[in-house]
Design a protein around this nucleic acid. Structure first.
Lengths: 334, 334
DNA sequence: ATTGCCGTGGAATACGTATGCATTGATCTG
DNA sequence: CAGATCAATGCATACGTATTCCACGGCAAT
């Protein structure tokens, strides 16, 4: 029913062979300017677009890249998916969005049928089986924002440990001593490294971080929202809380309002990422900035380099710096 | 370099023909249980997945659907893309995400090369050329949340006019008379219909809506954020403002804070959509609810019906009802 | 004038799957 | 027991593109 216009149709109209059509439209040097123009006209007239299935079969490349995220409604992901999409498009690739919850089976099947030239893993926990599966089939992939922590990885990440240290330093300087942490999942390097840097720098300042003031969970709104009341219920409630990322911090901020606390007078809250949302007047969230856009673009370029075989075979790990962004959710302890 | 395992490899190992492999793995009734099992084992052993390019070329179906949005970082879209993805997956289709800014050319090329079985347009303005192009090539598509307003459309939409009426009724009842509107773009039915319903119901209540208290713009944060100060600068500033959607309303709320206004004491603000964010403590936004998830799922199912030829050839327009959600950003005029 | 090269374009084929048709062996029917 | 029917499988081909190899004609060099 759907009338597919093929290169043969164009060839017939232009009075040349199908091979010449293919060459002309791809600017092959072995076709004269005159016939190239003739073919162009015919293709235009027929409203012809090369079938990408035919092309894929012939070239064994799809010019398509998969991007795996967990939950798009988590405000973090759109800010990484959008620049990824744009950079991939600029590099001549299309984006297949796959949201993977726990069903690695489905994701696996979609990934392994040769329909993707490469994959961006924006969601891999340290125990995911996906990387091994991709390795086995020689499908290029890169980690975005998280990695396995193994050497040989291809990853675009942030200096999480450094960012954690920054926050600890600020809190110590502000006089806080009863400090809490709502960290990311311990099975993500993002969660672990931020906690690690934070702990190390606190320890250097002589400040302890007892388990009773530590919560860990997914990088979600609910994690911050649910954790804060539990932390505040302690005998000696914290005067400051460092959150695994901005989304968690925003959850905590809303919980603080629900609990009738004033931020920052009663409680200092600090996030990580500096999402655009963090700068909204309702939040004015003090946080740690890194260049999310560059994080994504870097991942896209790295993946394409891996696809074209230009990447370092020993792995590449691109690390972006962090910067403390003081806004209105932190205060000196009085 | 990448060793592709094909059905021929499986056939050789299983000691059958390639045709039998194809049939066995697709549960064709004409293959015996014994050989089916034999083929299964061989496929498993070789870690074989059918090439989707080969399959596409042969069946002329990609089981892939394109979803076009403008800007994923706009908080509205993730809440529609996520359920779309899940419903499409449940229906056996994959999702190709395409963000279209103004470059219809790029989008067009990607859409028209037969690499998609169908398209969800979540972004179409009334003057977009895309629908015509898709029609010309017989590529099935549905509108999501917006449509052209023409008969024959396939669309999953909300009762925008009814929703606008709801808000007007409430504001009138609360005693507001100097009312403003920050509506969506006039070249979207979403923007037009909400404004229309709002205007009609206001008029029925004997309340005018002068141009000086009307702003129109994209459904973005910045639209609300920039428009509010302009509206407030009038000689007789409004006591209530109805925003085209929640994202715009949230922009307006933040602008109100920046201007030192108290909401709802000094100003009533009402949104549309009831995004999860609207319920956050920092906002507690009074708004109009509709079932976003169902909106998306309905669109997915309608598209698949169009693809399989089961949809009504005269077009189908699925309309979801709206409901007023009172929270904390509206108040009676004192 | 012959040779050889170069520029241009066509014929043929590969890519991997699905499927119509032919084939085979076996069972059934009268 | 011969012929018909049927289940199971193989053979061959189509899908649309890119590309290798080959053919042909013109032109320059000798």
């Amino acid at each position: 029913m759907r009338v597919a216009i093929t290169s043969h149709d164009v060839a017939r109209l232009a009075g040349v062979s199908q091979a010449t059509v293919s060459r002309a439209l791809r600017d092959d040097h072995r076709v004269s300017a005159a016939t190239r123009e003739k073919v162009r006209q015919a293709a235009q007239a027929l409203n012809y677009f090369p079938s990408e299935a035919g092309r894929t079969l012939s070239t064994r490349a799809t010019r398509r890249v998969g991007v795996i995220v967990t939950d798009l409604t988590n405000p973090f992901y759109p800010h990484v998916v959008a620049p990824l999409h744009d950079e991939l498009q600029a590099l001549g690739y299309r984006m297949m969005l796959i949201t993977e919850r726990s069903d690695e089976a489905v994701a696996g099947e979609k990934l392994l049928d040769q329909s993707l030239d490469g994959v961006v893993l924006a969601t891999a926990t340290t125990e995911s089986r996906l990387p091994a599966q991709l390795d086995r089939r020689d499908i290029p992939y890169v980690f975005l924002n998280r990695d396995t922590g193994q050497p040989g990885d291809y990853a675009s990440v942030v200096d999480n440990e450094g960012g954690g240290r920054l926050v600890a330093g600020v809190l110590a300087e502000l006089g806080h001593r009863r400090i809490a942490g709502i960290f990311g999942s311990p099975n993500t390097t993002t969660g672990r490294d931020r906690e690690l840097g934070f702990r190390l720098a606190l320890a250097e300042a002589g400040i302890g971080l007892p388990d009773s003031r530590v919560v860990r969970g997914a990088f979600e709104y609910a994690t911050g929202y649910d954790a804060l009341p539990r932390l505040l219920a302690a005998d000696e409630p914290p005067t400051a809380v460092f959150c695994g990322n901005d989304v968690v911090a925003i959850g905590a901020l809303n919980a603080a309002i629900a609990a009738g606390l004033r931020v920052p007078d009663d409680l200092t809250v600090i996030g990580f990422d500096d999402l655009p949302m963090a700068d909204w007047e309702v939040f004015r969230l003090t946080t740690v900035r890194h260049d999310l856009r560059e994080l994504a673009r870097q991942a896209a370029r790295l993946l394409v380099r891996r696809i074209t075989g230009e990447a370092d075979p020993a792995g590449e790990r691109l690390v972006l710096p962090t910067e403390f962004v003081p806004r209105a959710t932190h205060a000196r302890l009085h």
